[in-house]
C-alpha cells in the first residue's frame, strides 16, 4: 500500500483559479476501466495543440516541470465533476501533492483516497511558492506531513492544516475500507435499529 510522509520535489506553477475536472482530464478520456494510464492525457487541452503536438508554453511541457511532483494553483482547484480520474491522472503523471488556495470538496476527498496530499495555503503563501517554483530545478519544495509544513528553498516554513484522521491514514498507508470494516458490528446494529424503527423503508428489487 502506498503512503505519504515526506516529499522533496520540483513544483510546477499553474497560476489559475477554478481549474475544473474537465481541464484536468477531459470527459473523452473517462472510458477506461482501469485506474492507471491517464497521465498521458492530464491537462490534455492545455498540454497539447489540436494536431496532437505539445504546446511549448504549457508548464508541464517545459523543463524541469516535466518532472514536477508538486502542483501549485489558485482557488477552487478541482471543481466540477466527481471523477476520480482527475487524481488518477495527476498520480499517473507523477504528481503526489497539490498546493492551492482552496479546493473543491469532492476532489479534495478523492486526493486522500489516492495518497495525494492536498495542501491549502493562503494566496500570499501560494504566490510566494510560485515565485520559488519559477527558479525551476534549483528550487525544490519540501513537504513534511508529520510536521504539517511546506519548506521553501530558503528554509522558511508554511504550516498547513489537515484532518488528523486523514493524516493518520496517509502516513500509515491505511486503506479506509479496512478501517471501516473494523466497525462492522456497529453497522449491523445500526441497520437492525433502522429496520425496526423505520419499517416503511422499501428494498430495491427489480
Amino acid at each position: 500500500m502506498p503512503s505519504f510522509t515526506k516529499l522533496t520535489a520540483i513544483a510546477a506553477p499553474l497560476p489559475l483559479a477554478n481549474v475544473d475536472t474537465d481541464k484536468i482530464i477531459p470527459a473523452r478520456f473517462l472510458k477506461t476501466i482501469a485506474r492507471s494510464g491517464l497521465g498521458k492525457n492530464l491537462f490534455d487541452t492545455l498540454r497539447f495543440n489540436p494536431d496532437g503536438s505539445e504546446n511549448p508554453d504549457f508548464v508541464l511541457n517545459r523543463e524541469p516541470y516535466r518532472h514536477a511532483q508538486i502542483l501549485l494553483a489558485h482557488e477552487n482547484f478541482g471543481c466540477g465533476s466527481s471523477r476520480e480520474h482527475a487524481p488518477w491522472s495527476l498520480l499517473d503523471f507523477g504528481i503526489t501533492c497539490v498546493i492551492a488556495t482552496s479546493f473543491a470538496d469532492i476532489f479534495y476527498n478523492n486526493c486522500f483516497k489516492n495518497f495525494i496530499l492536498p495542501v491549502t495555503l493562503s494566496r500570499e503563501q501560494v504566490d510566494a511558492l510560485m515565485g520559488d517554483a519559477a527558479n525551476g530545478a534549483n528550487a525544490r519544495l519540501s513537504i513534511d506531513l508529520e510536521r504539517q509544513v511546506v519548506v521553501r528553498p530558503s528554509g522558511e516554513e508554511f504550516a498547513f492544516e489537515i484532518d488528523p484522521f486523514r493524516k493518520h491514514l496517509l502516513l500509515n498507508g491505511l486503506d479506509d475500507i479496512g478501517q471501516t470494516l473494523q466497525h462492522a458490528t456497529a453497522i449491523d446494529a445500526f441497520e437492525k435499529k433502522r429496520e425496526a424503527q423505520q419499517s416503511w423503508i422499501p428494498k430495491v428489487v427489480v
Binding site: 476527498n109 478523492n110 489516492n114 484532518d163
Partner: peptide, 21 residues
C-alpha cells in the same frame, strides 16, 4: 445527496457507509 469518487463508491459497496465530517 452528494457525489463521491470511485474509491468512495467502493467504500459504499463494501460497507454501505462513508467516512465523513
Amino acid at each position: 445527496a452528494f457525489g463521491i469518487g470511485t474509491s468512495e463508491v467502493e467504500h459504499v459497496l463494501a460497507t454501505q457507509t462513508l467516512l465523513q465530517k
